[in-house]
Simulated scan of single mutants.
Amino acid sequence: MKLNVREKEILLRSYFLSELPSATALKIVEHVTVASHEARDPIFKQGEKADYFYTVLTGFVRVFRLSKDGREADIGIYGPGETFAEGVMFNGGTHRFCAQTAESVTMARYEVDKLKQFASQDPAIGIALMASLSRNLDQALECVADDRLHTAPQRVANFILQNCPENASTARFRLPFQKSLLAGKLGLAPEALSRAFSALKSAGVSVHGRIIEIGDVNALRNF
């Protein structure tokens, strides 16, 4: 599959390519391939040799670690314009985690060997990859800190506040993905997420399917 105009725009605005000069970004885009997957399709498994890393164009991808006994720990949820698995460019070319689609997804695929060739000719590409990796690392560290510093309701409150318009007194938005994905993203079991939403009712939060309504944003900030 080839990129359409909208997909190309999303790709060029991605954190990785937006760090590069326009001519360099367009050169890379010429060698990108597009893959589509249905919901819950595996993209790669930990330990596999990596042929590609990816930028999401539509939908959401779940990245997680799988234990020996089959338990799963979510690492991140990636949506349109976000790049993931770029670490394979530097770690010997092996996936350290698993990736699975959360819903129907379209992704741009960067061929690892081709990007290594480009990066050897243009150091700016390596620097842009490191910037993308650093951004993902910062987000992962924020999740670790949030997990250790806040209770489950506070973690959910922080997520909700991130989706509220600045200076709004009330707000309403639709979760971009299923609540089961939100639970994993926040390091919670689904039942713990439900209890957290119940606890936030006192701060004016109500949940209707994937619709979140906040009657008093300031009360939620002070929760």
Rank of each mutant, 00 (worst) to 15 (best):
G47A: 13
E48R: 06
A50M: 05
D51C: 09
Y52P: 00
Y52I: 01
T55P: 08
V56F: 06
L57R: 01
G59A: 05
F60W: 11
V61Y: 02
V61H: 01
V61F: 03
R62S: 07
R65I: 05
L66V: 07
S67A: 13
G70D: 04
R71E: 11
R71M: 07
A73N: 04
D74T: 14
G76T: 03
I77A: 08
I77S: 05
I77R: 04
I77Y: 06
I77G: 02
Y78G: 00
P80Y: 12
P80V: 08
G81A: 11
E86C: 09
M89K: 03
F90I: 12
G92L: 05
T94R: 14
H95R: 15
C98Q: 09
C98R: 11
Q100A: 15
Q100T: 15
T101N: 11
A102L: 15
A102C: 14
T106G: 00
A108K: 03
A108L: 06
R109Q: 15
E111M: 13
V112H: 02
D113M: 14
D113L: 14
L115T: 14
K116V: 09
K116P: 08
A119R: 01
Q121L: 10
D122F: 00
A124I: 09
A128D: 09
M130W: 10
S132Q: 10
L133K: 00
L137V: 13
L137N: 06
Q139P: 00
Q139W: 02
L141T: 08
L141P: 00
L141V: 11
E142M: 10
E142N: 10
E142F: 08
D146I: 01
A152V: 02
Q154N: 02
Q154M: 06
Q154Y: 02
V156P: 03
V156S: 07
V156H: 04
A157N: 07
Q162S: 15
C164A: 13
A168E: 09
A168V: 03
S169R: 14
S169I: 10
R172Q: 15
F173E: 11
R174F: 11
L175F: 12
K179V: 03
